[in-house]
Design a protein around this nucleic acid. Structure first.
Lengths: 194, 194
DNA sequence: TTGAATACGAGACATGTCGTGTCGTAATGT
DNA sequence: ACATTACGACACGACATGTCTCGTATTCAA
């Protein structure tokens, strides 16, 4: 039970994550090397490899805290649809800063390393959806969202749109997000008889 | 005017693209190296570097023909919205095969090489949109799509959703695409009074 | 027929990154 | 004290990159 031997250095751990995060902002995940991280953190590459299996894993851990801090879902008294609308705009706004390119980099890394993709889905996508899906279900019950739509599909569409802009490096603004939400809410079909 | 010297070898050119395409299907863009391409094509790396600036550029050229063949937009007599619906389903279906992972790999490569992103937007996104945007505008005029929605935003949403599934390696089926289209067409808001 | 110009395949080279391993030293429990 | 584990520094082979040189092949023009 009692852990034996020299304990893990919290200082090193923190320094590594800090260095990783700084380098992510400066150069992006594509040009991040474990050597640069180790050097800046004053650590050795052995230590990095001891605790993380891959570059993606380090970047993920370094990014998660920041994301979780930037994107807090604070429910207000509104109906669920209005709340969802606010959530989307706050996400889009967060992606406008240096967070956007970092996210795009992580998505790219996920394509070359299945383990990073697993971490991404497990630590970011799944927890977020576990929060938002009930919100959308509540929207169906409080009458703001029509029944028959799958909450997950709503999220595929909306987050898909945001990812799309991120990956193609198309800057977004509030007007664009308003357009997305308008289509999502009202659809594109002409009204039967206005 | 008259080109002087030994002309470019069409055989080599074709062999390189063929080898690239095969390797893309077998291992994906992430594990594609120019060395493997050259070896399989019976060419030398010098030749690759002479004609293409980067790995992404080769992969792009090798992929474009195939995509352009797989995704042909054949207008039928329907109204524009119905035609758009068919287009989306055919895209989703195409992405279900080995084309999907290749596209995801290209999107990933775009994050590490701006030149590849430029090629992607210029040779794939832009031409496609140039075809589809008029289709959607026609939909506004023939009364199947309500006015006030930006065609480009419709495409951000729908292709965003498809990319989203590709990047997260979520397999799609016709039912999922139907759900996406239903939301896109009808929106998620509860009808005022059914 | 010769020669200039260009492409080709083969392969060498320095560089950078990766993943692993070794070493001496530091810090904890028993 | 001693076993155990973490640490930083460094070395190693493997691989991919981008550039280069070489001898050879193919074309046009003089």
């Amino acid at each position: 039970m009692a852990p034996v031997g020299r304990p893990r250095s919290d200082a090193s751990h923190a320094a590594i994550l800090k260095a990783t995060y700084e380098l992510l902002r400066e150069e992006g995940l594509a040009r991040l090397t474990l050597d640069k991280v180790a050097t800046r953190a004053g650590a050795s590459r052995s230590t990095l490899y001891r605790w993380w299996p891959s570059r993606g894993a380090i970047a993920m851990e370094a990014t998660l805290d920041m994301l979780n801090r930037e994107l807090s879902l604070e429910p207000k008294g509104d109906n669920a649809l209005a709340e969802f609308r606010r959530l989307l705009k706050s996400v889009a706004r967060a992606m406008r800063g240096s967070t956007g390119p970092i996210m795009a980099g992580i998505l790219a890394e996920c394509q070359r390393d299945p383990e990073t993709l697993r971490l991404f889905k497990e630590n970011l996508v799944a927890p977020r959806r576990a929060e938002v899906v009930p919100l959308l279900e509540r929207g169906i019950q409080d009458g703001s969202i029509r029944p028959g739509v799958a909450p997950h599909t709503i999220l595929d569409l909306t987050f898909g749109a945001i990812y799309h802009q991120l990956l193609l490096h198309v800057p977004t603004d509030d007007a664009w997000m308003d357009g997305v939400i308008d289509i999502l809410v009202n659809g594109i079909a002409a009204k039967p008889t206005a």
